[in-house]
Amino acid sequence: MRPPGGALVESPTTVAWQTRRAPLLNSMDFNTDHFTLFELPVRFRLDAALLDRRYLEMQSRVHPDRFASAGESERRLSLQWATRVNEAYQTLKKPLSRARYLLHLAAQDVGSENNVLMPADFLVEQMEWREAVAEARAAGEHHELEHLHHRLQGDIDERYGELAVLLDDRRDLEQAADRVRRLMFIEKLLVELDDAMIACEEQ
């Protein structure tokens, strides 16, 4: 098994190819950042409905199905553009990837999921959360899982609020990167919790 939440240490003897970096955004350079592509301000706080609308507008212009009977070069261009637009949208839509992307634009290193060092107290706290989830899951206590879920979601919302202040108001990138690293762990935990709830219902 992989260590939960991304490896803490790397061990070259057991891992054939370690992931060097998180997937870095685009290999194709269309010369603009994702925000500018959708004509949105480069910042964390975002009008989600507006992003959705711009995305659909763009996609309805460039999607390959619009070029089903076009020539080879147009089809290729359309494929590249549609890919690019999808990538930009996916990156901006979710707050965690949006924050990581902002830090990437500012050349602030966040580290990859499998390779970050976290303070011990945070890790202990994470362990405790995981144990609580595992226990509730093993005991089939759906109610307890729901309770944990509610608490964690509240915690996450609060953290994104804090992150918005760090990124948009205080421009404190180092602190923001630290919060992002923590959220990487916590978001994974949330997925595990969801899985546990679904597994619990299956029984």
Binding site: P12, T13, V15, A16, W17, Q18, T19, R20, R21, P23, L24, S27, M28, P64, L79, A82, T83, N86, E87, Y89, Q90
Partner: peptide, 15 residues
């Protein structure tokens, strides 16, 4: 559930 068309790249290394 990634919307297509899509492209992703990741770096690996030798061990």
């Amino acid at each position: 559930n990634s919307t297509i068309p899509t492209a992703r790249a990741q770096e690996f290394t030798t061990f």
